[in-house]
Design a protein around this nucleic acid. Sequence first.
RNA 1: GCUGGAGUAGCUCAGUUGGUCAGAGCUACGGUUUUGUAAACCGUGGGUCGAGAGUCCGAAUCUCUCCUCCAGCUCCA
Length: 594
Amino acid sequence: MKKSNPKKKKLDFDAVPQVEKMRHTASHVLAQAVLKFYPDTKLGIGPAIDNGFYYDFEFKDPISEEDLEKIEKEMKRIIKADLPMKQEFVSREEAFAYFKEKGQPYKAELLEDIPDEQVSFYVTGDNEFRDMCRGPHVESTGKIGAIKLQSIAGAYWRGDEKKPMLSRIYGLAFETQEELDKHLEMLEEAKKRDHRKLGPQLELFMFSDLVGPALPILLPKGAIIRRELERYIIAKKEHYGHKFVNTPHIGKSDLYIKSKHWQKYDAMMPPLNIDGVEYTLKPMNCPHHFEIYRNSAKSYRDLPLRIAENATVYRYEKSGETNGLLRVRALTQDDSHWFVRYDQIEAEIERALQLMKEIYEDMGLSNYKAEISIRDLENTDKYIGDPKVWENAEKTLEAVATKFGIENKVVEGEAAFYGPKIDLRAVDSLNREWQLMTIQLDFNQPDNFDLVYTDKDGTEKKVAVLHIAILGSIERFLGILIEHYAGAFPLWLSPVQVRILPIAEAHHDYANQLLATMLEDGIRVEVDNRNETLQYRIRESEMDKTPYLLIVGDKEINTQTVSVRARGSKAIGLMQTDEFIRNILKEIKDKAVK
RNA sequence: GCUGGAGUAGCUCAGUUGGUCAGAGCUACGGUUUUGUAAACCGUGGGUCGAGAGUCCGAAUCUCUCCUCCAGCUCCA
């Protein structure tokens, strides 16, 4: 999508939070510390970011992560010295001369883009360091709280891959040591939950170098979760009036030429040649679904028509951009295309958000935010379609989000040329945000594919299309769920719901009876009667996060009961077998999150 | 794709300056044991040290190319 450049707004210094000023000042301190050890270093830029700051440098000789320690130490010294941060203004000429003298070409380049006659600099201490910067900063370095240098990585100068790559040093900065420690703990916890580590450990998925990078393989347990998710989403969407279809994984290149993806979409897989005709792996389902729409003449009575498919699509993601299950080259979308009359748009947006809301709640992701992408209102010519329709759709998106109590922000100029959209970000158990669902309005593809219906008055009219994916990519969603639940899935999604552990051989028969009963009830249950100690088997089941263990021995046989142990060392105790079964069937049905 | 880092058994890791450095624990397999709420005991396997080429009398260790993964950048109509 072509993004319009947000207009440069005048920075309101008073509105900048203290913590952000502090982080920004920390980046200056970083630059000062770096120059102490590496005086020949050329400086890029150093802004505040979430949780900290960074600064871009061009080192004469590359430095490594080990060097960060001494730099951090020097930063702490500067902070402790509590050097004042003073703003001063110099003329452009003076500034250019200064950068020339100091050998700072990147700074000079930045200056070229600044129109001001008087250029703002910040001076640290007794001219120990000065940097061109509009600020704002805290009054002195001593106001910086707790910092920690994190990592060093390459970053293109001004984010342009054609420009030289600088070394970016990342740091964390918080107002207090406690906050910093808390954040480090969170990072540690996130590392433990990393789906790339947990997934293979729990035998949910794998990758094979030979099958190919970024092509996820779901193992039996992961396949169960995917199946449950799909079953659920199909049932839910059918309830919301979708028709499910199945379309092939490839299509003629002509199809994508017609949809104009071929010309614009750079994630297309290379074409295949079949019988002298060019085909490609489908990177999205839309054109296939459009052809389904065109299969028969449509009346205004047929609309809205909601076509859905859980379909695997293939995209060429550049090698450095793939990431675990989050960014892959083969992904299964829970895709839907709603073909609606223009007068139905508002109602259908509300319906889609209602559906989304129910689904997210069942997934245990009831905390989410919305971002609404609308036109650049000062430049509305580049958008296709009736401005009135746009305006209504934009307003509806916002109104419905607000009505549903979803925290939302409207981003001007972010909409695609063919329609506004709303993105939802779920907030997970570690307070991280994940972009999941999108409702994208599309006023353009109906033109490309001539998607029309006959209205009441006998005239032919264009439909509007809503592209709706709720889980997004099921693989990606699985990855997010793994991290959200730290591998301990709610019962309805757990690959193994109950594991029965007979204490000794004498109890195997009883265990197998229980197994048979529960299998009848459709419970995913196993018996672990391996020749291992009970403790050993409990440990293994705890490690694979099985929700319920049933321990059975003489006591249980005599009373026809089970000893229930819930995940996480929680002993529930003796329970009548049928009572246990009733309880967990209810828990499965309720999709309870424990 | 770019910059940097990493790749030793299924897993987690050890392996000083190239010379018994191919190891440990877990796993797997065989046996003993028949267990009451997070690791019983004994034994046996298992690796072209990511792949290929090169330097050397000799390479897990040095060089080059490639592959894969990780961090970040860029990208994500």
